[in-house]
Design a protein around this nucleic acid. Structure first.
Length: 287
DNA sequence: AAGAGGCCCTGATAGC
DNA sequence: TGCTATCAGGGCCTCT
């Protein structure tokens, strides 16, 4: 599901709902996520006040009042639901919380506040929570990751020096979180389409002008996707269970066999597996 | 050292 | 209806 824009949508609604609130309780139904939830997890978080909810790349960062943190990565299929406490049913435990279309299976973790709860659901369990005990360790956690496309460090000099002598194709570089972080399989194809670059082009052969296009279009695609509430294909929903809208704006992703949307282009969108990941591009304007 | 490939896991869908 | 195979938006590990 989630690339940078989807994670940002989730972050924004979490911040709005739980900032300055105290964690009343934590319920771990299944600790076997990608990283096993440690035994001290509940005790560590319980009683903490959420002073901020930040994000780096595809990681949500809960910031606690004692200067510790909890990372949350949604993996491929993780979703967050925020459910309000339902006053009407205060005396019946059965429907204590209002829950429109709340999935019953795979609700692995619940973080409970006075007036609402945050539910983590993840069928494939590729997501994880991770306690980070201080800001020094937080910095260390992300030290290997490349800059986000929005950061000034993601500039022409950085990209050009990174690409020197590299024979890996550009599409795999956009997916490489150590080069640039936050881009996933959908937006990699979309960025290369806007930049008119063939996804299989070797990085060391990419000219300065194309690097500039990547810088501009990476920002553009991610920014637009955030504005549209993220992309919903298969299972992404925001914290209220509503779908995003950016999938309607896809130029290439899952459009194989269809006409290129670029004005005047007669191309047909192709699907090709590059390193086992589906990749979409126009056979004419991305030559 | 860089780069390709496998693997973690469940669910939806297609084909027989 | 019910099998099996294939594919999913991520990231880490291992092998060459």
């Amino acid at each position: 599901m989630p690339e940078l824009p989807e994670v940002e949508i989730v972050r924004q609604s979490l911040l709005k709902k739980i900032k300055q609130k105290k964690v009343k309780n934590v319920l771990v139904r299944n600790r076997n996520l990608r990283l096993k939830i440690p035994l001290y997890f509940v005790g560590f978080i319980k009683g903490q006040k959420i002073i901020d909810v930040k994000r780096f790349s595809k990681y949500i960062i809960f910031c606690f009042s004692n200067f510790s943190y909890c990372l949350l990565h949604l993996g491929m299929s993780g979703t967050i639901h925020i459910v309000n406490k339902c006053k009407k049913n205060l005396f019946t435990n059965a429907s204590f919380y209002s829950s429109p279309k709340l999935p019953k299976k795979h609700n692995h973790v619940e973080i409970i506040f006075k007036d609402l709860k945050v539910i983590y659901n993840d069928p494939r369990r590729f997501g994880f929570f991770q306690i980070i005990k201080n800001s020094k360790l937080l910095k260390k956690r992300f030290v290997r990751l490349g800059p986000e496309p929005f950061q000034s460090e993601f500039n022409l000099d950085y990209i050009r020096s990174f690409f020197i002598g590299k024979k890996k194709n550009i599409k795999n570089f956009l997916l490489d979180q150590n080069f640039v972080s936050g881009i996933g399989n959908i937006y990699a194809s979309e960025i290369l389409f806007l930049s008119k670059i063939n996804p299989q082009k070797k990085a060391h052969l990419i000219k300065e002008n194309d690097c500039k296009k990547i810088i501009i279009n990476a920002k553009k695609v991610l920014f637009r996707a955030i504005k549209k509430g993220g992309s919903s294909i298969r299972d992404f929903k925001n914290t209220l269970g509503k779908e995003g809208n950016f999938q309607k704006d896809f130029n290439v992703y899952e459009r194989n066999g269809l006409r290129c949307k670029r004005f005047g282009c007669k191309g047909i969108i192709q699907k090709k597996f590059i390193s086992n990941r589906s990749t979409y591009f126009c056979n004419i304007c991305q030559l």
